[in-house]
Simulated assay, not measured.
Amino acid sequence: MAASNRTTPHPSTFILLGIPGLEAAHGWISIPFCSAYILSLLGNCLLLAVIKTEPRLHEPMYLFLSMLALADLIISSTALPKILSIFWFKDGAIRMDACLLQMYLLHSLTATESGFILAMAFDRYIAICKPLRHSAILTHRTVAKIGLGLVLRGAVLLAPHPFLLKRLPYCGTNVISHTYCEFMALVKLACADTTVTRAYSLAIAFLTGGIDFILIVLSYILILRTVFKLPSKEAHLPALSTCGSHLCVILVSYTLAFISFLTHRFGSSMAPQLPIIVANIYLLVPPMTNPIIYGVRTKKIRESIFRVFSIRGFPDLS
Rank of each mutant, 00 (worst) to 15 (best):
T8W: 04
T8Y: 03
H10R: 10
H10T: 09
P11S: 03
S12K: 10
F14V: 08
I15T: 04
L22W: 07
A24L: 12
W28N: 05
I31H: 01
C34M: 05
S35E: 00
A36K: 00
A36L: 06
I38D: 01
S40M: 03
S40H: 01
S40D: 04
L42C: 11
N44M: 09
K52H: 12
P55M: 13
R56E: 15
R56T: 15
P60C: 06
P60F: 07
M61L: 11
S66C: 10
S66I: 09
M67H: 15
D72T: 06
I74N: 00
I75C: 11
S76D: 05
S76I: 11
S77E: 05
L84A: 03
I86D: 03
I86S: 01
F87R: 00
F87A: 02
F89L: 15
A93R: 05
I94L: 06
R95D: 13
C99P: 00
C99L: 07
L100P: 06
T110H: 15
A111M: 12
T112M: 14
T112I: 14
S114P: 09
D123W: 12
Y125V: 04
Y125E: 02
R133I: 03
L138A: 12
T139A: 13
A144K: 15
K145D: 03
L150V: 15
L152T: 08
R153H: 14
A159Y: 14
L164W: 00
L164Y: 07
L165K: 06
Y170K: 12
Y170S: 11
C171H: 04
C171T: 15
T173P: 04
V175H: 00
I176Y: 04
S177I: 02
H178R: 01
C191L: 12
A192F: 13
D193F: 03
T195P: 00
T197Q: 07
S201V: 08
I216F: 06
L218I: 14
Y220V: 09
T226P: 01
T226M: 09
F228C: 04
F228L: 04
H236L: 00
S241V: 01
S241T: 12
T242D: 07
G244D: 00
S245E: 00
C248N: 05
V249I: 14
I250Q: 06
V252H: 05
I259F: 10
A271L: 05
Q273M: 13
L274P: 02
V278A: 08
Y282T: 11
L283H: 09
L284Y: 03
M288G: 05
Y294W: 10
K300S: 14
I301Y: 07
E303H: 12
I305K: 11
F309P: 07
I311C: 13
F314C: 03
P315G: 01
